[in-house]
Structures are given as C-alpha cells and as structure tokens.
C-alpha cells in the first residue's frame, strides 16, 4: 500500500518527515489500549497503571474482574469510552475518548476490554 510504503521510508529519516505524513492510519486495539488506557488501567487491565495514585477519587477499574465487568453490556462500554464515566454514573476520572478515537477504534477497544476478562462469570 502506497501510504504505508511512504511512511516506512519517512520514518527512517529525521523528525522533519512529520509534516509530510497523512493522518488516519488505523491502530490495532492493543496499540490503542497500551497507549491511551494502560496509563490508568495498566497494560494487563488490572488497574495498576502509573496514574493510579492514592489521592484519586476512585481507582481505575480492574477490567479483568468478573465482579466489575459483569455490570456492563457491550453498548454500555461503548458509551463510557465515547462520553466518559458520568454517562454510566461512573466517576469522571474515566475520560471521554470520543474526540480522540474513531467509532471503529472504540468498538475494537470494547472487544479488547471484553477479552481481558477471562475468569468465571465474565460476560461473553
């Protein structure tokens, strides 16, 4: 694919290539999770990211726990990811990502989050 090819060449050179690349390359759900979500939820999703400090109003939710995750349907997760915690009466520490990520990316993240929960009782 042409765009990818240009990009590969560009990244070999210096930062000045930044001005020439085009926006809109899709990231995998794992790439997005590790970049945006792991800062609070941790790469493994258990809630141990580096922003998880004692003074915060609530801890970043443990996305691997059936006890927590069985409360949320897929559409609810999509709503939270897009508009932030308060739309599902959760804390506003869970930020809105609808301006940063596309609806496809958010759907991918929903499925990714679902798959992080593996214990008995996790929603399928």
């Amino acid at each position: 694919m042409k765009t990818k090819y240009n990009l590969a060449i560009a990244t070999l050179s210096s930062l000045s290539f930044l001005a020439q690349t085009t926006p809109g390359f899709a990231a995998t759900p794992k790439e997005n999770f590790d970049w945006y979500c792991a800062q609070c939820h941790g790469v493994d999703g258990t809630g141990n990211g580096i922003n998880s400090v004692d003074e915060l109003p609530v801890g970043p939710m443990n996305l691997t726990a059936a006890k927590e995750m069985s409360k949320f349907t897929g559409p609810m997760i999509i709503k939270t990811l897009t508009h932030g915690g308060p739309v599902n009466t959760l804390d506003s520490l869970m930020p809105p990502w609808g301006n940063r990520l596309s609806t496809d990316e958010i759907e991918g993240l929903m499925n990714y989050v679902r798959a992080l929960c593996k214990e008995d009782g996790c929603p399928k």
């Binding site: 930062l15 930044l18 690349t21 926006p23 390359f25 990231a27 590790d34």
Partner: peptide
C-alpha cells in the same frame, strides 16, 4: 530539532 518538531500544526502519527 532532532528531538523537537519546529513546524506546525503538529502532524498525527500512528500509535505504533
């Protein structure tokens, strides 16, 4: 400039 982008607006890069 090796570390600081000096032209704007900043261009988006893929996460990877």
């Amino acid at each position: 400039e090796n570390c600081h982008q000096m032209t704007g607006p900043s261009e988006p890069l893929p996460v990877a």
